[in-house]
Structure formats: C-alpha cells, structure tokens
C-alpha cells in the first residue's frame, strides 16, 4: 500500500470515527437521558472498540458494530445498577435530568415532552425505536445489533410507537391537519394526530 493511499484510508477512518462519536452519544443519551452517563458509555464503547478492532471485518459496518458495543455497555451499566435482569421488563429509565442553560444539547418544551415519553418506555422498546428512527437502521440491522429476532424488533417498535402516540396525545390538544400536509412514500391524507407533531415540524 502506498503512503498516500494509507494516509487517505486513515483520514477517512478518522472522519468516520469522529462522526460515529456524535451519533453514539446521541443514541446513548436517548437510552439513558443523562449527559454524564452518555459520556461514560461512549467512552467505554470507544475503548472497547479500540481493543476489539480486529473483530471488525467490514469497515463499512463500523457504525452498526459500534452500536452493538454501545448496547452491550448500556446493558452492563443497567446490570451494574441492578435496574434490570430482563431489559424488556424494565418500565422506565432515569428521567431526563434538568438541563443547564449551557448544556449544548438544549431542548424546548416539545422536545422535553418527547424525551420524557421516550424515557418512560421499557428499555427494550426504547432501544428499538431509537435505533430505527435515529440511527435509521433496518429491522434486520436492529435485530443484529441487539441480538434479538426480527419479530421482536417489530413488536417492540409497534408497542413503543403506540405508547408514544398515546402519551403525546394525552398532553396536548388533538387537532387534525389539513389533507396532504404529511405523508411518506406516496402516503397522503389527513392526520388525526396531536398538535405537538405539527408544532414541532
């Protein structure tokens, strides 16, 4: 390998690691809702990744591989705190802490409500819905990351979204958006959903 190509590869990897760190932190925060715990989890994850680097066969799989390590670190953290023996049975995590003005990860009222609702999900559901929505993983990737069947991914996701929808509806006035204001992959129509959604978006 020439020096140039080696350097190029190294720089590319450097960039990937830097980007992964931000994404890992966001995911860790969405699981624990504590900046301090998220910091610790990410640092532990990267330390383990350093040591286990030879387990990563495909450089393109870096992100998913790091998420798997993060999930293991997170489960270790829960076990060490004796919060869970079966993570799907855990009913809640640490509630979002009061944020400092200079937090750097500021939140408005709507964001705070959404985070609270996510924080109150059972751990297994919280993990699945954040991996799908934040990390944009496929169901198969989530199943691999968390080492659970795809059917479990689907059922946890469904329960998580149902709970989130109900919790967010409970806390605001329900309004109906005009037809065609929201949709995906060809979906159009009215949205009988909470104002919180449209306020946010």
């Amino acid at each position: 390998m020439s020096l140039l190509s080696f350097f190029g590869r190294t720089r590319q990897f450097e960039s990937q690691v830097a980007e992964s760190r931000s994404r890992l932190w966001r995911l860790a925060y969405a699981w624990c809702h504590s900046r301090h715990v998220a910091d610790d989890l990410v640092q532990d994850t990267l330390a383990k990744a350093l040591v286990r680097h030879n387990q990563l066969r495909d450089p393109a799989a870096l992100s998913g591989w790091l998420c798997s390590i993060l999930a293991n670190c997170w489960h270790d953290h829960l076990r060490s705190r004796k919060e869970a023996t079966d993570i799907d049975d855990v009913d809640e995590c640490e509630l979002p802490e009061s944020e400092q003005p200079d937090d750097g990860y500021a939140q408005n009222e709507i964001v705070r409500r959404v985070r609270q609702a996510v924080a109150l999900l059972p751990t297994g559901q919280r993990e699945v819905v954040t991996l799908v929505d934040l990390e944009e993983m496929s169901y198969a990737e989530v199943a691999t990351t968390l080492d659970i069947p795809i059917g479990t991914v689907m059922s946890r996701l469904s329960r998580a979204r149902t709970t989130l929808r109900d919790k967010l509806k409970d806390r605001t006035t329900c309004t109906v958006a005009p037809a065609g204001t929201a949709g995906t992959t060809g979906t159009t129509g009215t949205a009988g959903t909470a104002a919180i959604y449209r306020l946010h978006g």
Partner: peptide, 20 residues
C-alpha cells in the same frame, strides 16, 4: 399511517445530532 410517520419525525427532531 400519517400519525406514525409524524411520530417518527417528532422523535428524530427531539434528538438532534450534537455538535462534535
């Protein structure tokens, strides 16, 4: 379907990627 899609967007918006 719209409700689910909007929920997905709301969740994503609640956890922006932090500055590096």
């Amino acid at each position: 379907a719209c409700e689910l899609w909007q929920l997905k967007q709301v969740l994503r918006g609640a956890y922006p990627l932090p500055p590096q």
